[in-house]
Computed example of a mutant assay.
Amino acid sequence: MSDVLLRPFRWDDVPAITAIYRHYVEETAITFDTEAPGEEAIAEKYAGLKRLGHPLIVAERAGRCIGYAYASFYRPRAAYRFTCEDSIYLDPAERGRGVGKMLLTELLEQSRAFGFKQMLAVITADTAGSIAIHEKFGFRRVGYYEAVGLKFDRWHDIVHLQLAL
């Protein structure tokens, strides 16, 4: 994995991030978005993350964005300000190569440095790989919600995992 560089988000990453996310919206139930946001919406979201100073990491190989991760407030109310939710997305061709592990390692480090005290992962229940990597990092299952998202004409369950930072 020495050919993968983890670095801060840049504005020229927006097209690649948009394309990666589009795949997951259109082809999977990993996200419950049903319409892929365009570059303008992604740029607006990331501007907000940058403004807040939240961790926002890009994985790059040979000058190309192959994945990204960020942590942001779990919920907007002030009492939740020390609790974050993580998000990690990879170019589908990069899955299973250790890039997600690299991103999660760095995301945990930056989230601690930011001052978050708890990290939550909200994962579609049939996404075994994502659940497994979180559990390898010490996340524990703290909740299970049945049939909360309807996508592709099927109800999906979600798992909540938590790690004290």
Rank of each mutant, 00 (worst) to 15 (best):
M1P: 13
S2Q: 11
V4H: 10
V4R: 14
V4E: 14
L6M: 02
R7C: 10
F9V: 04
F9S: 02
W11R: 14
D12Y: 12
D13E: 11
V14K: 12
P15C: 05
A16F: 05
I17Q: 05
T18A: 03
T18E: 10
H23P: 07
V25W: 00
A29R: 11
I30T: 14
T31K: 01
T31Y: 01
D33R: 06
T34K: 04
E35C: 02
E39A: 07
E40K: 14
E40V: 10
I42Y: 11
I42D: 09
A43H: 07
A43E: 08
E44F: 06
G48H: 05
L49I: 15
L49E: 08
K50A: 11
K50F: 06
K50N: 10
R51G: 05
R51P: 02
G53Y: 09
G53L: 04
P55G: 06
I57P: 08
I57S: 00
A62C: 00
A62F: 03
G63L: 01
R64V: 12
R64P: 01
C65N: 12
C65S: 12
I66K: 03
G67R: 08
Y68Q: 03
Y68F: 13
A71E: 12
S72A: 12
S72F: 11
F73C: 08
P76A: 04
A79C: 11
A79L: 05
F82W: 14
F82A: 13
T83D: 04
C84H: 06
E85L: 14
D86P: 00
I88R: 05
Y89E: 03
L90T: 03
D91T: 08
E94P: 02
E94H: 06
R95C: 12
G96F: 10
G98W: 03
G100W: 02
M102F: 01
L104E: 00
T105W: 12
E106A: 09
L107R: 04
E109H: 13
Q110F: 08
Q110L: 14
S111T: 15
G115R: 05
F116W: 08
F116G: 02
M119P: 07
A121M: 05
A121P: 00
I123G: 10
I123V: 14
A125G: 13
A128D: 15
S130R: 00
I131M: 02
I131K: 02
I133D: 06
H134T: 13
E135R: 15
E135L: 13
E135A: 11
K136S: 06
F137N: 05
G138K: 04
F139T: 12
R140P: 01
V142E: 09
G143M: 13
Y145T: 02
Y145M: 14
E146S: 09
E146Y: 01
E146D: 07
L150K: 15
L150T: 11
D153A: 07
R154G: 01
R154V: 03
R154N: 01
D157Q: 07
I158L: 01
I158S: 01
V159S: 11
L161D: 01
Q162N: 01
L165Y: 03
L165R: 07
